[in-house]
């Protein structure tokens, strides 16, 4: 568990899915498996370097009614995303 700041708000991150190195669609697949374990309103972090997540993660969140809090690239060129569980 850790605290991060997203859009000026402190958010508690319950778990991290490290999908760095994995090709599409595995980052989204690994995140989905992790989301199953979370309770409602808990937040998971996804780390990935496959460019597919830029389109695929927002699509996954929209289609499964999860909330994408943020998706950005860090200084090491890794995509970092935070997703809040809204739906079982």
């Amino acid at each position: 568990m850790k605290e991060v700041e997203i859009n000026g708000k402190a958010v508690t991150v319950v778990s991290t899915v490290d999908a760095v190195g994995l090709f599409c669609p595995l980052p989204v697949v690994k995140l989905k498996i992790e989301m199953e374990k979370l309770k409602l309103n808990e937040v998971a972090e996804l780390l990935a370097d496959d460019g597919g997540v830029l389109e695929d993660l927002p699509t996954y969140c929209r289609e499964t009614n999860q909330k994408l809090l943020s998706l950005s690239k860090n200084k090491d060129d890794i995509f970092v995303a935070y997703v809040e569980k809204q739906r079982e």
Binding site: C24, P25, L26, E63, T64
Partner: peptide, 11 residues
């Protein structure tokens, strides 16, 4: 299996 996994991720 990638197609299958992506579909599963989408519910």
């Amino acid at each position: 299996m990638s197609v299958a996994l992506a579909a599963l991720a989408l519910g």
